[in-house]
Design a protein around this nucleic acid. Structure first.
Length: 473
DNA sequence: ATGTCC
């Protein structure tokens, strides 16, 4: 493995060596660099990805990088659309894990704690959270599933679960083309009954306040105003996407040798993009992408209903909905590429034609969720971000494994790290692996990119009330 | 991330 070499401010390189076809490029400040061990798993994973056939360099590591299954989380791997490979593990288990931000016209300071608690309860009553969990929209899951998988949020809006403006403010307008349910296993389809559930792990629903505005003009365009209440939805394709990743990792792992592909491990199992295995994966992946868009659309519907019940208010406007685990065909450096973003958020620069019409002048918002009491960010892409295939980070990134967090974070540390934020804690021990000390400092992570012009900060959101999925104990 | 190992 090559030595991690500093090449500039907040900039490191793993120069191509051995089987690597291309370099790996990382963005780290001094604090984040010191948290990354030489020869660490995440660095090895970047080098492994750089050795796949048809990879178009560099493989990129974001400042929130940490070890994942195959490609690290916080990793971007572009492959040639023709002559390259697609890897299920390089998209991730939670296909189209992503965030949707809603803006309200409600000044956050008029909501006292009992009102916030009432809103939390009205939301929790409607949206199952935690591992497992069955949808309360049973009829939709039964009769509308095919439509949700092929048309995503668009299918739901046409059924009355939202408005046209919601779709205008979603990546891909809430529907990724190319979805084919025939490419999805029966086992995965069974797990699709989780439509409109939150899930566990790092997923959450959060009410927050627009605390700082750094780019007044972009904030205006996005409908964000200082002091106003926001709602952030962080979830993905649940057991459905998980099953598709598992299924196709197995299929690709077995088929790779037929294409003469040497795999560094199962996590990066890959097949040619135009092979039957590769194109079937992309057709199934699109179903999971659409499932997640539909999931966030239904959750939006439920949250609007909850606000109606408690406040008599349904004016919750979608600011944007963006994936951070996805593979998409895009053009970069004049080449047609398949960009795998795993724990990385697309951030197109101003003027880029793929922006939604309403956001062409600013570039679409790239929404970066914090964790519990950590702030979330609204960012935009820049011309300089073309270096990272128009991508920014996706969160803070783990600094402690789940098991290490459960072992080392004390009750006192947990309580003080949560501070004044209202949390639906049933048993704090279940939330230790999600507590802020288990993560890197999100301000460091965002500043690492902002300092070198790879992104521009629009606004910072401070959490007020957070709903996390938990088990029964 | 995940019916946290069919």
């Amino acid at each position: 493995m090559p030595k991690l070499t500093k090449t500039g401010h907040n900039r490191y390189l793993l120069p191509r060596t051995g089987a690597m076809q291309v370099d790996a490029l990382l963005f780290l400040n001094d604090a984040l660099r010191s948290q990354l061990a030489e020869n660490s798993v995440e660095l090895q994973q970047l080098c492994d990805a750089a050795a796949l056939p048809g990879v178009f360099g560099p493989v990129v590591g974001m400042p929130d990088i940490h070890a994942g299954f195959g490609l690290p989380i916080g990793g971007i791997m572009a492959t040639r659309a023709h002559g390259g490979v697609v890897s299920a593990g390089a998209v991730g288990m939670d296909i189209n894990c992503g965030v949707r931000l809603l803006a309200t016209k409600i000044p956050a300071d008029i909501l006292d704690k009992p009102t916030l608690r009432a809103l939390m309860q009205a939301i929790e009553k409607r949206i199952p959270a935690g591992v497992g969990g069955k949808s309360r929209h049973h009829r939709l899951c039964r009769e509308g599933l095919e439509d949700a998988l092929t048309h995503g949020a668009r299918g739901l809006v046409s059924k009355g679960y939202g408005i046209r403006a919601d779709l205008d403010r979603c990546e891909e307008s809430g529907c990724l083309s190319g979805a084919q349910t025939a490419a999805v296993s029966a086992k995965a389809l069974q797990r699709a009954a989780q439509l409109s559930t939150l899930g566990g792990g790092n997923h959450f629903l959060e009410m927050g306040i627009v605390e700082i505005i750094e780019d007044e003009s972009a904030a205006n365009t996005f409908g964000l105003e200082k002091g106003m209440l926001t709602v952030l939805i962080h979830t993905g394709s649940r057991g459905f996407g998980h099953q598709i990743c598992t299924d196709y990792t197995e299929i690709m792992f077995k088929a790779a040798k037929n294409y003469g592909i040497h795999l560094p491990g199962k996590g990066l199992a890959a097949c040619p993009t135009d092979s039957p295995e590769g194109s079937n994966y992309l057709a199934a992946m699109a179903c999971a992408v659409n499932f997640a868009f539909a999931n966030r659309q239904l959750i939006t519907f439920d949250i609007r209903e909850a606000f109606q019940e408690v406040l008599g208010e349904t004016d919750l406007a979608v600011v944007y909905d963006v994936a951070h685990n996805i593979a998409k065909f895009e053009e970069h450096f004049g080449e047609k590429l398949l960009v795998h973003r795993k724990g990385a958020t697309r951030a197109l620069p101003p003027g880029h034609g793929e922006n939604p019409v309403c956001y062409v002048a600013t570039g679409h918002p790239a929404i970066v969720p914090g964790s519990m009491n950590s702030p979330s960010y609204v960012l935009t892409g820049t011309e300089a971000a073309k270096e990272s295939f128009c991508s920014v980070n996706h969160g803070a990134g783990r600094v402690m494994s789940r098991s290490a967090a459960k072992k080392h974070i004390s009750r006192e540390q947990f309580m003080s790290s949560v501070g004044d934020v209202l949390l639906n804690t049933r048993n704090y021990k279940q939330l230790l692996d999600e507590a802020p000390p288990a993560y890197k400092n999100i301000n460091d992570v965002v500043d690492t990119l902002a300092d070198i012009g790879l992104t521009k900060i629009t606004a910072r959101l401070q959490p007020l009330a957070v709903i996390k999925g938990q088990g029964d104990d």
